[in-house]
Design a binder for these strands. Structure first.
Lengths: 334, 334
DNA sequence: TTTTCTATTGTTAACGGTAACATTACCACA
DNA sequence: TGTGGTAATGTTACCGTTAACAATAGAAAA
């Protein structure tokens, strides 16, 4: 357990050459004479040599690792973003270093420092609100940084995202068009994106002379929370006929709670979610939702970074991706 | 963009001391005279100094990073395992390096090498089947390695998991006890854990003189797949009255498909899942499922590694966690 | 035979921190 | 006045790999 990994020197000693020759063999076998190749390979196998990246990271400040900083790892949305990122980075031989900061800017600052201290070659982040120190670190890092999720962010970084505000406005308007009037917004977490969505919801309600009502919490969303919100809102506002949720989890939880109570969806209450996860698109009734390009977002972000790493100029740019309103069966038919 | 990060030397030059003094100040300010402290701090702030871990990793082979190798990152099960792991590691200042191998042993071998090349201090892995080379790397790594998920694994490593076979046997027996007879097993991915579950299902069926039927695919499970399997199985075996799925996704997908077809659950068909995700415990009808301690598994694994890193002897040990049979409302009441 | 070239292998230094040891300066005390 | 002690700071070497340059030997060319 305590004997440490063999180094190039160990392999070289076994073969009777210098470590430089072994190093050459590993990176470019043709540079080494045919006579040596077999014995070097044999020595590598025998010792189970595994390269050590640390020296390279130290001397070239290139780790071949990309830092990914997300608010949460358990959120389905981010899981799919990660999949998109890895789809692109993995074949290129880049390792992803994931970190999450639980929606806290202070923790985000720490995490940025940690990732940079490992010399990540590039960084993907996902919030537009940073502490001043974090801001400075990002500017001085000297590596490509890209911000994802929210295209309306005012951050000075390269951005790939969607317009959450307009997406929420459209979905709300769709519910109104379909005959829902007293629509409540279910919010959780209260991060930037949720605030954007609330803004869009309010705009649509006010444009139709309807009164916005918001149920909110700072804690995480869940199916259970959706059910709990529904109970509460029915007591406080018995006349509601629509619920728009900040994500599918809340919506599905609320929908189940309606089924338990015998409330007919969408006849008595229309329900809409956000993101369009697999389950929302398989369930009965089909959930009305905003389908967002989560995986594509990760993919595009990774591709942009790769280009930057391959020497292309990496300047600020805002890429707005499109979303899709899915009416499903959980809001009234027109 | 191209100017590189300031080093200790840069800070030292600005203050007019050697980098050693700055290094001391960062790690232990009392070792530096009061007169210097303010100017060093000012220089650190001005340059935005961020420590570089590479030299330390190089000279001490300690990265303060833990490698976590999972088959998939998008699977809800593993997301919760990760949360458990991070709950423990993060407060201790350890960074997690996540990697996944898409259920391919060859890719797993590559990933192990990659994680080791970054000098991770310990490793959490999740399959018992490794290539010989992977096996050797794990043995020679000289770091604590722990295997999670399957307590019946024959691997020579430290193990924390559950007995998937006996869990599946119990759930199948429960369905039989509740009056279901022609129970089909829905399998996906066909990894070790699924094979274990199939074994348990078969044992229970045969013990009751019932004929096991297995629907299987090597592709990933999803809600959609559950629905598709249901359609197929109804054609092939119109007399089935029960479905036991290798995970909740398949089960919920099958359940929705039943609802669409107007098949009554559980009266006409009983359905059970595996894992007990939040949704399974919120939906209508409540899903029968095996509740597994996913987060606890991650937590315990991380704690065991930490102890090993803090010098405690790290010997092979098998920790079997308990699961819980939840009857829900999707199988008949007794 | 001698020179030149080339293929192969060797040598040195560097990356940025820190452990271990060395030095300096100042003070207290005999 | 000199000695010993101590607090503060400096110096050196090392971790493992590779870029850059150096050296060697053998073959081809003159």
């Amino acid at each position: 357990m305590k004997k440490k990994r063999p180094t190039l020197q160990d392999v070289a000693d076994l073969v009777g050459v210098t470590k430089m020759t072994v190093s050459r063999f590993i990176r470019n076998p043709e540079q080494v004479s045919g006579a040596l190749r077999d014995s070097i390979q044999a020595a590598l196998d025998e010792l189970g040599y595994i390269p050590n990246r640390a020296p390279d990271i130290l001397s070239k400040s290139k780790s071949h690792a990309i830092g990914v900083l997300l608010p949460s790892l358990t959120n389905q949305v981010f899981a799919e973003v990660i999949r998109g990122i890895e789809t692109v980075l993995e074949p290129e031989g880049y390792q992803t270093m994931l970190a999450h900061f639980g929606y806290s800017p202070e923790l985000e600052e720490q995490r940025i420092a940690t990732l940079l201290s490992y010399n990540v070659d590039a960084l993907i982040i996902s919030e537009s609100q940073h502490t001043p120190k974090a801001q400075k670190m990002l500017e001085n890092a000297g590596i490509p940084v890209i911000e994802i999720m929210d295209s309306t962010s005012s951050s000075p970084l390269h951005i790939i995202g969607i317009d959450n505000c307009s997406a929420a406005r459209e979905m709300t308007q769709t519910m109104i068009d379909h005959g829902h009037r007293n629509i409540v917004y279910f919010a959780a977490r209260m991060d930037q994106r949720t605030l954007q969505k609330i803004e869009g919801y309010k705009q649509a309600m006010q444009a139709n002379n309807l009164h916005p009502i918001i149920k909110e919490t700072h804690s995480a969303s869940s199916f259970t929370l959706g059910a709990q919100f529904l109970d509460e809102v029915l007591t406080q506002h018995p006349d509601i006929d629509g619920i728009f949720c900040t994500n599918d989890d809340l919506a599905i939880g609320a929908l189940y709670a309606c089924q338990k109570k015998g409330l007919k969806v969408p006849e008595q209450i229309g329900i809409a979610g956000f993101h369009g996860h697999d389950i929302a698109r398989a369930m009965v009734p089909l959930l009305a939702t905003v389908i967002t390009p989560r995986e594509e977002m990760g993919r595009l972000a990774a591709e942009a970074l790769l280009k930057g790493l391959q020497g292309a100029p990496f300047q600020k740019q805002v890429i707005e991706l499109s979303y899709q309103i899915e009416c499903g069966e959980s809001i009234k038919a027109i």
